[in-house]
């Protein structure tokens, strides 16, 4: 093969690789990106059963219940008007408490959200209070205040 042709072949290969990366990424993102849902969205059935999602809102006051095994808790995530019951087995993060913001990662099983991970709002000074839910959280606080 002439050097010129070889270079052309390599250039084409490089372009194919970039295209492959984009296609592969799109395929991967189609069903593996976890979408963020608020309790209101869950209530109207927007969250698909069994798909990995994030649920964000406030931990409803007085809703945290400890099960007898000592490591499983039930609580309710609310945005003020809609409630979603959540079950979580594990050690809760330090700033997880009633009345404060929370984001849970997990799946809907029937009417209950089964959480694999709980992210609590950290100290504002270090962690921007987004965690993917700033807007939802503020909306929730406002509704609760009203």
């Amino acid at each position: 093969m002439k050097p010129k042709h070889q270079r052309l072949t390599l250039a084409v290969l490089a372009i194919i690789a970039v295209a492959a990366a984009v296609l592969l990424a799109m395929w991967g993102l189609r069903d593996r990106a976890a979408y963020f849902f608020t309790p209101a969205e869950v209530a109207i059935g927007k969250a698909q059963q069994g798909a990995a999602i994030r649920l964000g809102g406030m931990v409803k006051k007085g809703s945290i219940r400890q099960r007898s095994d000592g490591v499983t808790i039930d609580f309710i995530v609310t945005d003020g008007s809609h409630d979603v019951p959540v079950v979580y087995r594990g050690i809760t993060p330090d700033l997880f408490k009633e009345g404060s913001g929370v984001v849970a990662e997990g799946r809907m099983r029937g009417k209950t959200f089964v959480a694999d991970t709980i992210l609590a709002k950290h100290d504002e000074r270090y962690m921007p209070p987004q965690m993917g839910n700033e807007v939802a959280e503020h909306a929730a606080v406002k509704t609760v205040q009203q």
Partner: peptide
């Protein structure tokens, strides 16, 4: 390069999606 490409897209997609449509996605 392909690995770099898919990591790049996966890392930036949520940021771009949120900027464009306000949709909150985590990859």
């Amino acid at each position: 390069s392909v690995i770099l490409g898919v990591v790049f897209v996966g890392t930036l997609y949520p940021i771009i999606a949120e900027a464009l449509s306000g949709e909150k996605i985590s990859v």
